[in-house]
Amino acid sequence: MIIDVVDLRGLCEQVLGGQGLSEEDAHILTDILIEAELRGRATHGVIRVPGIVKRIDSQGRTAMKLEREGAAYALIDGQGNLGYLVAHRCAKTVIARTDRSGIGVVGAYNLSHSGMLGYYTSMLADAGFVAMAMCNTGPRVAPWGGKQAVLGTNPISAAFPMQGGQVLVDLSAAAITSGELLVAIKDGASIPEGVALNADGAVTTDPESARGGAVLPFGGHKGYALATMIQIFGGVLMRGDPIPDSGNYGFFLMGIDPEIFGPKADFLAGVHSLVEQIKNTKRPDGVAEILVPGERAFREREMRLSHGINVDDNLLDEIKRA
Rank of each mutant, 00 (worst) to 15 (best):
P155I: 05
S157W: 05
S157K: 01
F160V: 05
Q163C: 06
G165R: 07
V167P: 08
L168F: 06
L171W: 10
L171D: 01
L171G: 04
A173G: 12
A174P: 09
I176E: 04
T177D: 00
T177K: 00
A184T: 11
I185Y: 03
K186E: 14
D187R: 15
D187Q: 15
D187C: 10
E193M: 11
E193C: 04
A196E: 05
L197H: 01
N198H: 01
D200G: 05
G201Y: 06
V203S: 12
D206E: 02
D206I: 07
S209A: 15
G213E: 00
V215L: 08
F218G: 01
G220W: 06
L226M: 13
M229P: 00
M229Q: 10
G235H: 03
V236P: 06
L237A: 12
L237M: 14
R239Q: 14
R239C: 06
P242L: 02
P242H: 04
P244M: 08
Y249T: 03
G250H: 05
F251E: 08
F252Q: 10
E259V: 13
E259M: 10
K264L: 02
A265F: 00
A269C: 04
G270M: 06
V271H: 08
H272R: 14
E276Y: 06
I278F: 14
K279I: 02
K279W: 11
N280D: 13
D285A: 14
V292T: 15
V292I: 15
A297L: 00
R299T: 09
